[in-house]
Design a protein around this nucleic acid. Structure first.
Length: 302
DNA sequence: TACCAGGAGAGCG
DNA sequence: CGCTCTCATGGT
Protein backbone atom coordinates (compact mmCIF):
# COMPACT_ATOMS: atom_id res chain seq x y z
CA UNK A 1 0.00 0.00 0.00
CA UNK A 2 1.03 3.59 -0.57
CA UNK A 3 -0.33 5.94 2.10
CA UNK A 4 -3.01 3.44 2.94
CA UNK A 5 -4.04 2.92 -0.67
CA UNK A 6 -3.78 -0.71 -1.77
CA UNK A 7 -1.71 -1.57 -4.82
CA UNK A 8 -4.88 -2.37 -6.70
CA UNK A 9 -6.67 -0.85 -9.64
CA UNK A 10 -8.90 -1.95 -12.48
CA UNK A 11 -5.92 -1.64 -14.77
CA UNK A 12 -4.21 -4.89 -15.54
CA UNK A 13 -0.47 -4.65 -16.06
CA UNK A 14 2.52 -6.93 -15.87
CA UNK A 15 4.92 -4.48 -14.26
CA UNK A 16 4.64 -2.29 -11.18
CA UNK A 17 7.20 -0.14 -9.43
CA UNK A 18 7.01 -0.07 -5.64
CA UNK A 19 8.57 2.91 -3.91
CA UNK A 20 10.71 1.66 -1.01
CA UNK A 21 13.01 3.14 1.55
CA UNK A 22 15.71 1.28 3.39
CA UNK A 23 15.08 -1.98 1.58
CA UNK A 24 17.92 -4.33 0.63
CA UNK A 25 16.33 -6.89 -1.66
CA UNK A 26 19.41 -9.04 -2.05
CA UNK A 27 20.10 -9.46 1.65
CA UNK A 28 16.44 -10.10 2.27
CA UNK A 29 16.20 -12.85 -0.34
CA UNK A 30 19.52 -14.49 0.56
CA UNK A 31 19.31 -14.44 4.35
CA UNK A 32 18.01 -17.98 4.66
CA UNK A 33 14.31 -17.21 5.07
CA UNK A 34 13.22 -18.40 1.64
CA UNK A 35 14.85 -20.93 -0.63
CA UNK A 36 13.42 -20.34 -4.09
CA UNK A 37 14.93 -17.07 -5.32
CA UNK A 38 17.40 -16.98 -8.18
CA UNK A 39 19.57 -14.21 -9.53
CA UNK A 40 18.92 -14.04 -13.27
CA UNK A 41 20.41 -11.19 -15.26
CA UNK A 42 20.61 -8.76 -12.37
CA UNK A 43 17.07 -9.44 -11.19
CA UNK A 44 15.60 -11.89 -8.71
CA UNK A 45 13.15 -14.43 -10.02
CA UNK A 46 11.02 -16.56 -7.80
CA UNK A 47 7.55 -17.73 -6.88
CA UNK A 48 5.08 -15.98 -4.61
CA UNK A 49 1.95 -17.99 -4.04
CA UNK A 50 1.27 -19.46 -7.46
CA UNK A 51 2.79 -16.64 -9.49
CA UNK A 52 6.19 -16.33 -11.05
CA UNK A 53 7.65 -12.88 -10.40
CA UNK A 54 10.84 -11.03 -11.25
CA UNK A 55 12.03 -8.40 -8.81
CA UNK A 56 14.51 -5.68 -9.71
CA UNK A 57 15.96 -3.37 -7.12
CA UNK A 58 16.44 0.24 -8.20
CA UNK A 59 17.27 3.32 -6.21
CA UNK A 60 14.27 3.80 -3.98
CA UNK A 61 12.19 1.27 -5.86
CA UNK A 62 11.56 -2.39 -6.34
CA UNK A 63 10.14 -3.18 -9.75
CA UNK A 64 7.96 -6.27 -9.92
CA UNK A 65 7.30 -7.99 -13.21
CA UNK A 66 4.89 -10.89 -13.66
CA UNK A 67 4.28 -13.29 -16.52
CA UNK A 68 0.58 -12.55 -16.94
CA UNK A 69 -0.96 -9.11 -16.24
CA UNK A 70 -2.69 -8.53 -12.90
CA UNK A 71 -4.59 -5.66 -11.30
CA UNK A 72 -4.02 -6.66 -7.70
CA UNK A 73 -0.43 -6.36 -6.47
CA UNK A 74 -0.96 -6.62 -2.76
CA UNK A 75 0.46 -10.13 -2.70
CA UNK A 76 3.84 -8.68 -3.67
CA UNK A 77 3.88 -5.92 -1.08
CA UNK A 78 2.61 -8.30 1.56
CA UNK A 79 5.27 -10.89 0.77
CA UNK A 80 8.07 -8.33 0.71
CA UNK A 81 6.67 -6.44 3.73
CA UNK A 82 7.28 -3.21 1.89
CA UNK A 83 5.19 -1.03 4.19
CA UNK A 84 7.02 -2.13 7.32
CA UNK A 85 8.85 0.82 8.81
CA UNK A 86 12.34 -0.37 9.63
CA UNK A 87 13.04 2.94 11.29
CA UNK A 88 10.50 2.00 13.91
CA UNK A 89 11.85 -1.50 14.43
CA UNK A 90 15.62 -1.01 14.55
CA UNK A 91 15.48 1.37 17.56
CA UNK A 92 13.89 -1.41 19.62
CA UNK A 93 17.01 -3.57 19.29
CA UNK A 94 19.48 -3.69 22.19
CA UNK A 95 22.39 -1.31 21.66
CA UNK A 96 25.35 -3.59 22.15
CA UNK A 97 28.34 -3.58 19.79
CA UNK A 98 27.45 -6.82 18.01
CA UNK A 99 23.88 -5.74 17.38
CA UNK A 100 25.03 -2.36 16.08
CA UNK A 101 27.52 -4.02 13.76
CA UNK A 102 24.81 -6.38 12.51
CA UNK A 103 22.40 -3.52 11.83
CA UNK A 104 25.11 -1.66 9.94
CA UNK A 105 26.22 -4.67 7.92
CA UNK A 106 22.70 -5.81 7.08
CA UNK A 107 21.09 -2.42 6.48
CA UNK A 108 17.79 -2.83 4.68
CA UNK A 109 17.32 -6.49 5.59
CA UNK A 110 13.64 -7.38 6.02
CA UNK A 111 11.61 -10.29 7.25
CA UNK A 112 9.41 -11.72 4.52
CA UNK A 113 5.81 -12.83 5.04
CA UNK A 114 5.61 -16.24 3.43
CA UNK A 115 2.96 -18.85 2.87
CA UNK A 116 2.67 -20.99 6.03
CA UNK A 117 2.58 -24.38 4.31
CA UNK A 118 5.49 -23.71 1.99
CA UNK A 119 7.47 -22.27 4.88
CA UNK A 120 6.65 -25.19 7.18
CA UNK A 121 7.46 -27.81 4.58
CA UNK A 122 10.67 -26.04 3.57
CA UNK A 123 11.99 -25.88 7.11
CA UNK A 124 11.05 -29.49 7.80
CA UNK A 125 13.35 -30.23 4.88
CA UNK A 126 16.07 -27.91 6.18
CA UNK A 127 17.27 -29.90 9.16
CA UNK A 128 21.00 -30.68 9.05
CA UNK A 129 21.22 -29.45 5.50
CA UNK A 130 23.12 -26.58 3.94
CA UNK A 131 21.16 -23.94 2.11
CA UNK A 132 22.40 -25.11 -1.30
CA UNK A 133 21.07 -28.58 -0.61
CA UNK A 134 17.78 -27.34 0.82
CA UNK A 135 17.29 -25.43 -2.41
CA UNK A 136 17.98 -28.54 -4.47
CA UNK A 137 15.49 -30.63 -2.52
CA UNK A 138 12.77 -28.00 -2.79
CA UNK A 139 13.44 -27.47 -6.47
CA UNK A 140 13.08 -31.19 -7.09
CA UNK A 141 9.93 -31.33 -4.98
CA UNK A 142 8.27 -28.50 -6.89
CA UNK A 143 9.40 -29.82 -10.27
CA UNK A 144 7.90 -33.21 -9.62
CA UNK A 145 4.76 -32.39 -7.66
CA UNK A 146 4.00 -28.70 -8.24
CA UNK A 147 1.97 -27.09 -11.01
CA UNK A 148 3.95 -25.67 -13.92
CA UNK A 149 3.65 -21.89 -13.89
CA UNK A 150 3.48 -19.32 -16.63
CA UNK A 151 6.99 -17.93 -17.12
CA UNK A 152 8.15 -15.35 -19.71
CA UNK A 153 10.30 -16.79 -22.47
CA UNK A 154 13.98 -16.84 -21.74
CA UNK A 155 13.56 -17.66 -18.05
CA UNK A 156 13.95 -20.97 -16.31
CA UNK A 157 10.75 -22.98 -15.85
CA UNK A 158 9.01 -22.73 -12.48
CA UNK A 159 6.44 -24.64 -10.49
CA UNK A 160 4.11 -23.85 -7.64
CA UNK A 161 4.92 -25.32 -4.26
CA UNK A 162 2.94 -28.57 -4.01
CA UNK A 163 -0.01 -28.34 -1.63
CA UNK A 164 -0.32 -30.41 1.53
CA UNK A 165 -3.13 -32.32 -0.18
CA UNK A 166 -0.89 -33.29 -3.09
CA UNK A 167 2.05 -34.28 -0.89
CA UNK A 168 -0.24 -36.23 1.43
CA UNK A 169 -1.16 -38.45 -1.49
CA UNK A 170 2.41 -39.03 -2.66
CA UNK A 171 4.06 -42.30 -1.57
CA UNK A 172 6.89 -41.72 0.84
CA UNK A 173 9.31 -43.42 -1.53
CA UNK A 174 8.53 -40.74 -4.12
CA UNK A 175 9.42 -38.06 -1.58
CA UNK A 176 12.63 -39.83 -0.72
CA UNK A 177 13.70 -39.76 -4.32
CA UNK A 178 13.79 -35.96 -4.02
CA UNK A 179 16.93 -36.53 -1.93
CA UNK A 180 15.28 -35.57 1.35
CA UNK A 181 16.34 -38.75 3.13
CA UNK A 182 15.07 -39.23 6.68
CA UNK A 183 13.01 -36.07 6.37
CA UNK A 184 10.59 -37.79 4.00
CA UNK A 185 8.39 -39.40 6.67
CA UNK A 186 8.28 -36.07 8.53
CA UNK A 187 7.12 -34.18 5.46
CA UNK A 188 4.61 -36.90 4.57
CA UNK A 189 3.13 -36.94 8.06
CA UNK A 190 2.97 -33.15 8.26
CA UNK A 191 1.24 -33.02 4.89
CA UNK A 192 -1.35 -35.55 6.06
CA UNK A 193 -2.03 -33.63 9.25
CA UNK A 194 -2.60 -30.42 7.31
CA UNK A 195 -4.57 -32.03 4.49
CA UNK A 196 -6.87 -33.87 6.87
CA UNK A 197 -7.72 -30.68 8.71
CA UNK A 198 -6.14 -32.05 11.86
CA UNK A 199 -4.17 -28.81 11.97
CA UNK A 200 -5.55 -25.68 10.29
CA UNK A 201 -2.57 -23.48 9.47
CA UNK A 202 -4.77 -20.44 8.78
CA UNK A 203 -6.31 -20.59 12.25
CA UNK A 204 -2.89 -20.14 13.84
CA UNK A 205 -2.87 -16.51 12.72
CA UNK A 206 -5.17 -15.59 15.59
CA UNK A 207 -3.33 -17.72 18.17
CA UNK A 208 -1.01 -16.29 20.79
CA UNK A 209 2.63 -17.08 20.06
CA UNK A 210 2.97 -19.87 22.63
CA UNK A 211 -0.22 -21.58 21.53
CA UNK A 212 0.66 -21.48 17.86
CA UNK A 213 4.09 -22.83 18.72
CA UNK A 214 2.61 -25.75 20.63
CA UNK A 215 0.32 -26.68 17.77
CA UNK A 216 3.14 -26.63 15.22
CA UNK A 217 5.36 -28.71 17.49
CA UNK A 218 2.71 -31.42 17.60
CA UNK A 219 3.67 -32.17 14.02
CA UNK A 220 6.25 -34.91 13.59
CA UNK A 221 9.61 -33.49 12.56
CA UNK A 222 8.76 -30.06 13.92
CA UNK A 223 10.68 -29.05 17.01
CA UNK A 224 11.24 -25.64 18.56
CA UNK A 225 13.60 -24.35 15.90
CA UNK A 226 11.45 -25.17 12.89
CA UNK A 227 8.29 -24.01 14.64
CA UNK A 228 9.92 -20.68 15.41
CA UNK A 229 11.08 -20.26 11.81
CA UNK A 230 7.52 -20.71 10.58
CA UNK A 231 6.11 -18.43 13.26
CA UNK A 232 8.58 -15.71 12.26
CA UNK A 233 8.85 -16.06 8.48
CA UNK A 234 5.23 -16.98 7.68
CA UNK A 235 3.07 -15.62 10.50
CA UNK A 236 5.18 -12.66 11.49
CA UNK A 237 5.08 -13.19 15.25
CA UNK A 238 7.55 -10.48 16.24
CA UNK A 239 8.92 -12.35 19.25
CA UNK A 240 9.36 -15.73 17.57
CA UNK A 241 13.05 -16.50 17.93
CA UNK A 242 14.52 -19.47 16.06
CA UNK A 243 17.65 -20.76 17.78
CA UNK A 244 19.82 -22.84 15.49
CA UNK A 245 23.47 -23.79 15.92
CA UNK A 246 24.59 -20.44 14.49
CA UNK A 247 22.51 -18.24 16.74
CA UNK A 248 23.29 -20.44 19.72
CA UNK A 249 27.00 -20.01 19.13
CA UNK A 250 26.68 -16.31 18.37
CA UNK A 251 24.75 -15.55 21.54
CA UNK A 252 27.05 -17.71 23.61
CA UNK A 253 30.17 -15.97 22.39
CA UNK A 254 28.79 -12.44 22.24
CA UNK A 255 26.86 -12.23 25.47
CA UNK A 256 28.37 -14.71 27.94
CA UNK A 257 31.70 -14.78 29.71
CA UNK A 258 33.95 -17.77 29.06
CA UNK A 259 33.09 -19.09 32.50
CA UNK A 260 29.34 -18.70 32.08
CA UNK A 261 29.53 -20.38 28.68
CA UNK A 262 30.39 -23.71 30.23
CA UNK A 263 26.97 -24.43 31.68
CA UNK A 264 24.85 -22.92 28.93
CA UNK A 265 22.06 -24.89 27.37
CA UNK A 266 19.23 -24.18 24.97
CA UNK A 267 16.82 -23.23 27.73
CA UNK A 268 19.16 -20.59 29.12
CA UNK A 269 19.85 -19.16 25.68
CA UNK A 270 16.12 -18.96 25.01
CA UNK A 271 15.46 -17.26 28.32
CA UNK A 272 18.20 -14.75 27.63
CA UNK A 273 16.90 -14.03 24.12
CA UNK A 274 13.35 -13.65 25.39
CA UNK A 275 14.41 -10.96 27.84
CA UNK A 276 17.24 -9.27 26.00
CA UNK A 277 16.24 -8.62 22.39
CA UNK A 278 13.02 -6.73 22.98
CA UNK A 279 9.62 -6.62 21.27
CA UNK A 280 11.08 -7.34 17.82
CA UNK A 281 13.40 -10.12 18.93
CA UNK A 282 12.72 -12.10 15.77
CA UNK A 283 13.88 -9.22 13.61
CA UNK A 284 16.98 -8.78 15.75
CA UNK A 285 17.68 -12.49 15.40
CA UNK A 286 17.58 -12.25 11.61
CA UNK A 287 20.08 -9.40 11.63
CA UNK A 288 22.45 -11.24 13.95
CA UNK A 289 22.07 -14.47 12.03
CA UNK A 290 22.76 -12.99 8.63
CA UNK A 291 25.56 -10.84 9.99
CA UNK A 292 27.37 -13.74 11.63
CA UNK A 293 27.03 -15.96 8.59
CA UNK A 294 28.16 -13.41 6.02
CA UNK A 295 30.99 -12.30 8.29
CA UNK A 296 32.25 -15.84 8.80
CA UNK A 297 31.93 -16.53 5.10
CA UNK A 298 34.07 -13.49 4.34
CA UNK A 299 36.75 -14.67 6.76
CA UNK A 300 36.98 -18.26 5.60
CA UNK A 301 35.41 -19.03 2.23
CA UNK A 302 33.43 -22.26 2.45
C1' DT B 1 38.30 -40.89 2.14
C1' DA B 2 36.19 -39.18 6.03
C1' DC B 3 33.66 -35.66 7.82
C1' DC B 4 29.94 -32.61 8.34
C1' DA B 5 25.74 -29.83 7.40
C1' DG B 6 20.65 -23.86 9.95
C1' DG B 7 17.29 -30.66 13.82
C1' DA B 8 14.27 -33.94 15.82
C1' DG B 9 13.24 -37.93 18.37
C1' DA B 10 14.27 -42.06 20.85
C1' DG B 11 16.76 -44.13 24.53
C1' DC B 12 19.41 -43.74 28.39
C1' DG B 13 21.06 -42.68 33.42
C1' DC C 1 15.13 -33.60 32.72
C1' DG C 2 19.81 -33.50 30.13
C1' DC C 3 22.86 -35.94 27.47
C1' DT C 4 24.12 -39.00 23.36
C1' DC C 5 23.14 -41.43 19.30
C1' DT C 6 20.93 -42.03 14.94
C1' DC C 7 18.68 -40.77 10.88
C1' DA C 8 19.87 -39.97 4.62
C1' DT C 9 22.23 -37.65 1.41
C1' DG C 10 25.47 -34.77 -1.10
C1' DG C 11 29.38 -31.74 -1.08
C1' DT C 12 34.20 -30.83 0.10
Amino acid sequence: MINGVPFCSTLEQNTLSFPVSNYDLEQTLTSGQAFRWNLEGGSWTGIVGSRWVRLTAGSGTIVAHVATPVSDWNWVSEYLQIVVRLDQILPTFPEDDAMKAAVEACAGLRLLRQDPWECLASFILSSTKQIVQIRQIIHELTRRFGQPLCVPSGFAPAWSFPSAEVLASVPESELRSCKMGFRAPYLAAAARHIASGDLDLESLRSFPLAGARERLMELPGVGAKIADCVLLFAYGFPKAFPIDVWIFKAIKELYFSPRARRKLNLGKIRLFAENYFGPNAGYAQQYLFHYMRTRDRARSPQ
